[in-house]
Computed example of a mutant assay.
Amino acid sequence: MQIDKIRGHQTDQLFKAILELKDLDECYHFFDDLCTISEMQSLSQRLEVAQMLKLKKTYDTIQSETGASTATISRIRRCVDYGSGGYDKVLNRLYPETGEES
Score class of each variant (00 low, 15 high):
residue 62 I to E: 00
residue 34 L to F: 12
residue 2 Q to S: 14
residue 66 T to R: 03
residue 98 T to F: 13
residue 90 V to M: 13
residue 50 A to G: 04
residue 87 Y to V: 05
residue 54 K to C: 09
residue 79 C to E: 15
residue 73 I to T: 01
residue 23 D to Q: 05
residue 59 Y to A: 01
residue 46 R to T: 04
residue 36 T to M: 05
residue 90 V to T: 13
residue 13 Q to M: 12
residue 27 C to K: 08
residue 39 E to R: 06
residue 30 F to T: 00
residue 54 K to E: 11
residue 19 L to W: 11
residue 22 K to H: 06
residue 95 Y to M: 12
residue 99 G to D: 10
residue 47 L to P: 02
residue 78 R to C: 12
residue 76 I to G: 00
residue 56 K to P: 04
residue 76 I to V: 04
residue 72 T to M: 13
residue 97 E to Q: 14
residue 34 L to W: 04
residue 11 T to Y: 09
residue 43 L to K: 09
residue 31 F to Y: 07
residue 101 E to V: 08
residue 14 L to M: 07
residue 38 S to F: 05
residue 79 C to R: 13
residue 98 T to V: 10
residue 16 K to Q: 11
residue 3 I to A: 14
residue 37 I to A: 11
residue 3 I to D: 13
residue 78 R to V: 12
residue 27 C to P: 04
residue 1 M to K: 10
residue 57 K to P: 02
residue 1 M to F: 13
residue 96 P to K: 11
residue 41 Q to S: 09
residue 37 I to D: 10
residue 24 L to V: 05
residue 77 R to C: 04
residue 90 V to I: 13
residue 10 Q to M: 08
residue 63 Q to M: 13
residue 26 E to R: 08
residue 44 S to I: 08
residue 76 I to L: 00
residue 50 A to H: 00
residue 17 A to M: 13
residue 63 Q to K: 14
residue 56 K to V: 12
residue 39 E to I: 04
residue 35 C to H: 11
residue 50 A to C: 09
residue 75 R to G: 01
residue 57 K to W: 10
residue 90 V to Y: 07
residue 17 A to R: 10
residue 99 G to T: 05
residue 38 S to P: 02
residue 32 D to F: 07
residue 13 Q to E: 10
residue 7 R to W: 10
residue 57 K to T: 07
residue 50 A to F: 00
residue 62 I to W: 00
residue 53 L to P: 00
residue 50 A to V: 04
residue 89 K to G: 08
residue 87 Y to D: 01
residue 4 D to L: 15
residue 66 T to I: 03
residue 51 Q to H: 11
residue 40 M to I: 07
residue 80 V to R: 02
